[in-house]
Design a protein around this nucleic acid. Structure first.
Lengths: 236, 236
DNA sequence: GCTATTGTCAAGAGAAATCTTGAATACTTC
DNA sequence: GAAGTATTCAAGATTTCTCTTGACAATAGC
């Protein structure tokens, strides 16, 4: 009976892990961090909030232990503390999909109608890659491609896709992938490709799932990332 | 850009699943519900809070969708909505173990020193059960045994163990199991058995993990549980 | 050293969560 | 249908969370 206090403290601390994810903005941050390390500024941009606010959310995550940070020059880069955090995020998503009312509707509101989009599973893509008869586009922002991508994939951030349509061979079978099931980049890419007469499909889940499945990838080895100071090359 | 709002709404709703678990008392409730369906009163007792407060926590869980409720006579029984909720809870625990600072210490404070306790893994127990040379004790409260237990296990709630020591064959190899890694019942049982000259080990995790692993169990089939009105039979 | 860049800290207003208390509701049993 | 049991509802005090604003700190490059 005297350990009511100890028991409460233990479960309070277990709940800390959930509290870290118990906020929409922090969930967005974890979703982005699942793609790899990012700076505070980039993350603030991603979630559309102020630097100060984003910094505070990141520190909440940091205090929980689910993410870690390191200095890289003037920037501070945050990343997930380990694979179990990614698993936790994916499991939470799955639990919400199955049981949280209204999620399907909200997903549809945000993602739009996916029924016209061709999709392809991880296993199917792996086979196609083995056969070599497919062009794989990584349509996430470039830094995410830089910190890790599917082997043989080409980086074409979705914003740049329109201007780079010409570089995709006519008649090619294209597969686009992005962050995961709740990311619109691959959807947008496939729609744009289809409009331009290309056969394209969306990988049904994203890069983190590819990594978790142990499939072939290219991982950034440099701890200190090369920052594009002259940032014009990507736009050409 | 216009779908900032839709994106925020989507991630806010994803975060609802985390909010449901983002409280120590609700975490305790989920941990108990992982053993099977329980009434509000029983649950209030388990977490040591008032009925009203427990009811409110349960309704928070209910609203999140992670648990469900059904009426059974005058009582209302709550249970987890599906296996993914159990997975979520287990993953959260694992994430906290690996990354939340101070958890190890708190666990030790609550659980005490486990270094002297023999433990046995699921796989080891499965083999021992096949060989039939082991006595398996389910030392959880009786209702949890009733709603599901390891096949061939005997219900001996840890409170009753002392008075029922005589019924355990001398020289038997005993394995005790309970709710899971953060439950003290099996620890207490093994200590008591050891003090009485019996060879005993604790199953390293609990009944939910056994079920998740697809190992042989007995599951309550009756939807409406037989309530012990004359509650004296178990104490004999 | 000086300045620009990047991130954090601190304080405060508004909203949400937590727990308590006492009253109300729904079903069972007599 | 009256009484009893089990649970929920409602209101309120306290604490925690969230976001904003403006000041402060650390590093890079000159």
């Amino acid at each position: 009976m005297t350990d009511h206090r100890a028991k409460a403290a233990l479960y309070d601390t277990l709940a800390e892990a959930a509290k870290a994810l118990a906020n929409g903005r922090r969930a967005e941050l974890v979703d982005v961090l699942a793609q790899g390390e990012r700076s505070v500024e980039e993350l603030a941009d991603e979630i559309g909030h102020t630097l100060a606010n984003t910094s505070q959310h990141l520190q909440r995550l940091l205090r929980s232990g689910l993410v870690q940070s390191r200095r890289d020059g003037t920037r501070i880069c945050y990343s997930l503390s380990g694979p179990v955090v990614l698993t936790l995020w994916q499991t939470m998503r799955r639990a919400a999909e199955e049981h949280v009312a209204g999620l399907q509707q909200l997903a549809e509101d945000y993602l739009g109608d996916r029924s016209q989009l061709a999709t392809i599973t991880r296993d199917q893509l792996r086979e196609r890659l083995r056969d070599g008869d497919v062009v794989v586009l990584d349509v996430r922002p470039e830094p995410e491609y830089a910190s890790g991508h599917i082997r043989d994939a080409v980086s074409v951030p979705v914003q740049d896709l329109k201007s780079r349509l010409g570089s995709i061979p006519r008649g090619a079978d294209v597969v686009a992938y992005c962050r995961g099931p709740y990311c619109v980049y691959a959807d947008d890419a496939v729609r744009l490709l289809n409009q331009n007469g290309l056969t394209a499909a969306r990988l049904e889940d994203g890069f983190p799932e590819w990594v978790m499945a142990g499939l072939p990838q290219v991982q950034s080895t440099s701890t200190s990332r090369a920052r594009p100071r002259s940032t014009n090359e990507g736009a050409a």
